[in-house]
């Protein structure tokens, strides 16, 4: 299998590919700028990176698996609250608390995924929406643990052992490393047997079944894997902000995640990063327009989706005039050729 660095090198050798990957390079550049510049943009970049992890999970379930979920905020909430409660009330360290949070989210994903994933299309979307709403209500009502709307404050920052990422820049560097790991793992998943099976049944469940793919099992696996990303994002969010309340994991998180997924490029490995950075920074670009800011932001989003329906990650099609042969850097067309050449 071709390695990721080799794929990136091959992509960037061609000047046209440099243009194609401009949105990705821009997103990476903006994060680097935030690390260097500091100030308010650090907070924005931090949120963007956390959402990049959250949306990477959505991208596996929706972009590769072709399913719909409006309830991944539930997994972020479970992990986020678990992390917050264990660190503030029981004095746990950040990493084990996050681990337990992720485990809790995975458990819920398995329990609810098994019956729910029998549904398809809009029905699945509605069922997952209900899960998100139920978890939100629990966060509001279970005041003895979650402290309701008041929320939990004083959550420690990210850290390992005695070391804590106390400064904004340190947090941003840690988040950047986590996002790199998230992207790499998503790339590996996309190029694995599992990833190919997901893309297959997103195209045709019957055709995938007829090839021996256990669609129900892989759907559940994709749901659980995507819940892991959402859960990690949920825990990161509470440790970066230092506070959690039900609103943090409300419907706004789902809507933001969807917007980032589609603006960035659904199905493309780098789409979540591009989308998260663009959606977090785009409103700031229009700040000078004051009361017209939201209108212009809305129009900009509509224009993006009209003229680049595959998101920023597929912008190459705008000037190529043909479908991008490689709308994700994850594609590895040489696999079969390599196997053929490897034959003794």
């Amino acid at each position: 299998m071709t390695s990721l660095p080799a794929t990136i090198f091959r992509e960037l050798r061609d000047p046209l590919n440099l243009v194609r990957h401009l949105p990705t390079l821009l997103a990476v550049g903006l994060v680097l700028y935030a690390i260097v510049a500091g100030g308010y943009v650090v907070a924005l970049a931090g949120f963007a990176l956390i959402y990049a992890v959250f949306v990477t999970g959505l991208n596996i379930f929706m972009g590769l698996g072709g399913q719909a979920s409006f309830g991944h905020n539930a997994f972020a909430a479970i992990s986020g609250y678990t992390s917050a409660v264990l660190t503030t009330s029981y004095g746990w360290e950040t990493l084990p608390a996050m681990g337990v949070g992720v485990l809790g989210a995975v458990t819920l994903a398995v329990i609810i995924g098994y019956p729910t994933l029998r549904l398809k299309g809009h029905y699945l979307a509605m069922a997952t929406l209900a899960i998100g709403l139920i978890v939100y209500e629990i966060a509001v009502q279970w005041q003895s643990v979650t402290q309701g709307y008041t929320g939990i404050s004083g959550i420690p920052p990210l850290g390992i052992g005695k070391w804590e990422a106390a400064s904004d820049r340190a947090q941003l560097i840690v988040l950047s490393l986590i996002v790199i790991l998230a992207m790499l793992s998503a790339w590996r998943i996309r190029n694995s047997r599992f990833g190919r099976a997901l893309v297959a049944f997103s195209g045709s469940e019957d055709a995938a079944r007829a090839l021996g793919i256990d669609v129900a099992r892989y759907k559940l696996a994709a749901f659980v894997v995507s819940a892991v990303y959402a859960a990690i994002a949920g825990s990161l969010l509470v440790h970066i902000v230092g506070f959690v309340s039900p609103e943090v994991f409300g419907m706004s998180m789902v809507i933001a995640g969807f917007t980032m997924l589609y603006v960035g490029g659904i199905g493309a490995v780098v789409g979540p990063l591009v989308g998260a950075v663009m959606i977090n920074l785009l409103p700031e670009t229009f700040r000078g327009l004051k009361e017209y800011q939201d209108i212009i932001y809305g129009v900009a989003l509509i224009m993006i989706l009209i003229y680049a329906p595959g998101g920023f990650a597929s912008m190459s099609t705008l000037w190529r005039g043909a479908p991008s042969e490689d709308d994700t850097i994850a594609r590895d067309p040489g696999l079969a050729v390599n196997a053929l050449e490897a034959k003794p």
Binding site: R196, S204, A336
Partner: peptide, 10 residues
């Protein structure tokens, strides 16, 4: 029932 977004190799 081919998987249109995938390559022939995939």
């Amino acid at each position: 029932g081919i998987f249109a977004p995938m390559t022939v190799a995939e």
